[in-house]
């Protein structure tokens, strides 16, 4: 066992982990931050996306010890300080960008990373950016729409709400 320390959602945390402990396991099992989900074992589905030092990564595809000393952001830390939904989260609710909710944490975290680097993405840019996030429920329509809305764009002309 090795001690790992990091800042998660602004709070310093540490724990004893094995070399093989994944960041997703550390978050879920050690810190009980179960909002980060694991949907595959080949780093494709993106349900586990978190931010490490400001960048989106697949936490099921990164060892916890690799994040030692890092700033980690998860879905649990996304809401506003008063507990209300942040702009992206609110857009997902407003535009029905989620159904079963399992892919949602990864979608929100990827969307946040996208809008940080590209504040007003086109539809094509949103779709392209989400290529590492699978959703089985929504057909992506309302996810793309929600992200564009969260970027401040008028989405009222997009077919059917």
């Amino acid at each position: 066992m090795t001690q790992v320390s990091m800042t998660v959602n602004g709070k310093p945390v540490s724990g004893d982990v094995e070399g093989r402990t994944l960041l997703s396991s550390f978050l879920r099992d050690h810190l009980s931050l179960t909002g980060t989900h694991v949907g595959c074992d080949t780093a494709q589905c993106g349900a586990c996306v978190v931010h490490v030092d400001g960048e989106a990564v697949k936490s099921c595809n990164m060892l916890a010890l690799e994040a030692d000393g890092s700033e980690v952001g998860t879905i649990e830390g996304q809401a506003n300080s008063d507990g209300s939904l942040n702009t992206i989260q609110q857009a997902f609710q407003d535009h029905h960008g989620l159904q079963c909710g399992f892919c949602t944490p990864g979608m929100v975290m990827s969307a946040a990373a996208l809008l940080k680097e590209n504040p007003r993405p086109t539809e094509a840019e949103v779709r392209k950016y989400l290529e590492g996030n699978l959703c089985r429920c929504t057909g992506y329509h309302n996810i793309v729409k929600a992200i564009m809305a969260a970027s401040g764009q008028n989405v009222s002309s997009i077919a059917a709400e």
């Binding site: 879920r28 649990e76 996304q78 939904l85 989260q89 997902f92 609710q93 029905h96 989620l98 909710g101």
Partner: peptide, 20 residues
């Protein structure tokens, strides 16, 4: 088109799935 109340827990990581 009422907004979905269940969304709030899913959007904040507060869902309760079996693996949780």
């Amino acid at each position: 088109s009422s907004k979905r109340r269940e969304d709030v827990r899913f959007l904040t990581g507060a869902g309760n799935y079996t693996d949780d």
